[in-house]
Design a protein around this nucleic acid. Structure first.
Lengths: 233, 233
DNA sequence: ACCTGAACACCGTTCAAGT
DNA sequence: ACCTGAACACCGTTCAAGT
């Protein structure tokens, strides 16, 4: 057992703490260990520092949550502004779809983020900038401000790539034991029928039969088409 | 100070604890004091009992959260099944809109519920029953099971009346101090333009310019119309 | 059987003290 | 100035004990 593997002795040559370093550690922690692991004490531990040291760089835990949201939306903003999407003056639907799917890709790397974002009461500047971009696309596509406003509400959190399903999507073992499925046919004939129909159509997917990306795109296109009709009508 | 006002001496004639009573107390507590107040210790206090007594009727706090979700969705189910809505065979859109708006009305009485529902990993039986009803409406309206399945995903949590906005809707003081609004015109011209356009159109509403019900209905109708178009081919 | 009290391992946070 | 240690007021929960 060589001594020089000791991973606590020389934790990097003393890079000083900073708000940014605290928030980066917090995001990494949530990515790796889930939102429940995001405690002041564990963030401090990750940084090799005493819990109380954090308070010199962030006001409190709420400020950390505000901060990680800021970082994630910043990452989204970087993704949509770093690359060139379709020209909104030519095809606003393609442009908006591109932007939203880019945002969604970032959120898939931070699955805990939507839940936190929705608990924030004030809108971060990064979010404002993102929405400004969405509005720009709609305007370039010929929307009045009034219709664009309705459009923002209609998209809701989906405008930033949120999935909006009723229950946690990441739960692979959504049980359904055979006995329960048996009696489901009696009490819930339509649900049983739907599952049978879909299992028949795509038998390879057993029972995790819903492809997230397909369903997200279906819903998004539905809304975009509806908005286009409102715009023309 | 009359003695008989003492509100701790004879807390009701000893009605025994039960799972149902625990859950009802939990729902009431969340309604009145918010989700943060929903702790084992406060629920117990509300029932005039020691915290540990709760564990004889619910497994742990997770079970309480599962339970309050069950109660709220049960209330939704009662609302949609207690009254007769439009006939889905005649107008499936009207029938589904009626069902969803009824669910939404219940959720407005339990604003904390959507956040909790979305943290549950397993689907409660009450939720299954609600969705069975939605599917029944779609089928009566002539949907294939396949399209009905897409429809459920497209509606997502909106199928149960969820608002799906990006940020907490109940925050009335979404600040926007004039100075910030001033420079917003420079950095975010489209947002500034939109706010100006809408303030012009509905000057009485100052800056809480978004009527939740209007926006919810706009989005819902957009989706229902889109689904109808898909159904017709 | 149902309820209780003390205790444990965790939180976020305050405060006074160190360098 | 930045970081620390002890302490406080809260959590959820285990366990052994009461009735």
């Amino acid at each position: 057992m060589p001594l020089w593997i000791d991973d606590e002795a020389d934790e990097r040559p003393r890079v000083p703490l900073s708000r940014r370093r605290v928030l980066r550690a917090a995001v990494e922690l949530a990515d790796q260990a889930g939102l429940d692991a995001l405690t002041m004490r564990r963030v401090a531990q990750e940084l090799g520092v005493e819990p109380m040291s954090l308070y010199h760089h962030v006001a409190n835990k709420e400020a950390i949550l505000d901060g990680v949201v800021e970082m994630v939306i910043g990452e989204i903003l970087g993704a949509v502004e770093g690359e060139e999407g379709p020209d909104p003056a030519g095809d606003w639907q393609a442009a908006l779809r591109w932007r939203i799917l880019a945002a969604r890709e970032v959120l898939l790397r931070h699955k805990w983020a939507p839940g936190v974002i929705q608990t924030r009461s004030s809108i971060s500047e990064a979010a404002i900038a993102y929405y400004e971009g969405v509005l720009g696309i709609l305007r370039a596509g010929g929307f009045t401000y009034d219709l664009a406003h309705h459009a923002l509400h209609a998209l809701g959190s989906r405008a930033m790539g949120f999935t909006q399903e009723m229950f946690e999507p990441d739960n692979p073992d959504d049980d359904m034991d055979p006995a329960m499925l048996e009696q489901m046919g009696m009490k819930y004939p339509h649900l049983a029928g739907m599952m049978a129909a879909i299992a028949h159509e795509a038998p390879e997917t057993t029972l995790s039969w819903c492809d997230d990306n397909t369903e997200f795109s279906f819903a998004l296109d539905l809304i975009l088409e509806g908005l286009e009709r409102r715009r023309l009508g």
